Amino acid sequence: MRKVFTKLVFTILSLGSIAASAQENDLGAWYMYFGNNKISKKLNWHNEIQYRNFNAAGDLEQLLIRTGIGYDLTENNNNVLLGYGFIISRQYINGEKKENIEHRIFQQFITKQKFGRFNLQHRYRLEERFLQDDFRMRFRYMIGLNIPVNKKEMLPNSLYVSVYNEIFLNLDSPVFDRNRVYGALGYVINKNMRVEAGYMNQIQENRNRGQIQIGFYNNIPFNKN
Rank of each mutant, 00 (worst) to 15 (best):
W30P: 03
Q113G: 15
M154D: 00
Q23Y: 06
Y217A: 02
S21A: 13
E99D: 07
T111Q: 10
R136D: 11
Y217V: 06
D134H: 02
D72V: 05
I220N: 08
W45R: 03
E166W: 00
L155D: 12
M137S: 06
I69V: 13
R138W: 04
N94S: 08
M1H: 03
K114W: 05
D26K: 05
E166K: 01
K7Q: 09
T111Y: 10
I39M: 10
L159M: 10
N218R: 10
L43N: 13
K42Q: 11
D134K: 00
R194Q: 10
Y164N: 04
G186K: 01
Y33S: 02
K38D: 12
I12G: 01
G215V: 07
R209A: 13
L169P: 00
Q121C: 05
N119M: 09
R140F: 08
F118V: 07
L126I: 15
P156T: 13
R180K: 05
L126P: 10
Q204P: 01
K98M: 10
F176M: 00
G68K: 01
I87G: 02
V80C: 07
Y124R: 04
A20L: 06
K114L: 12
G16Y: 13
D133P: 00
N119L: 08
D59L: 01
N192T: 07
L126F: 15
I12S: 05
D26H: 12
N76G: 11
G85Y: 08
Y31R: 03
N165M: 10
V163Q: 00
H46V: 14
S162N: 10
N150H: 01
T6D: 06
K42Y: 10
S21H: 05
F176E: 04
L73I: 11
Y92C: 01
N55A: 14
E166T: 00
L185E: 02
S162G: 08
M32E: 08
G68F: 00
I39W: 11
Q213L: 14
G144K: 03
V163M: 00
F222E: 14
D134P: 01
F118N: 08
Q132E: 07
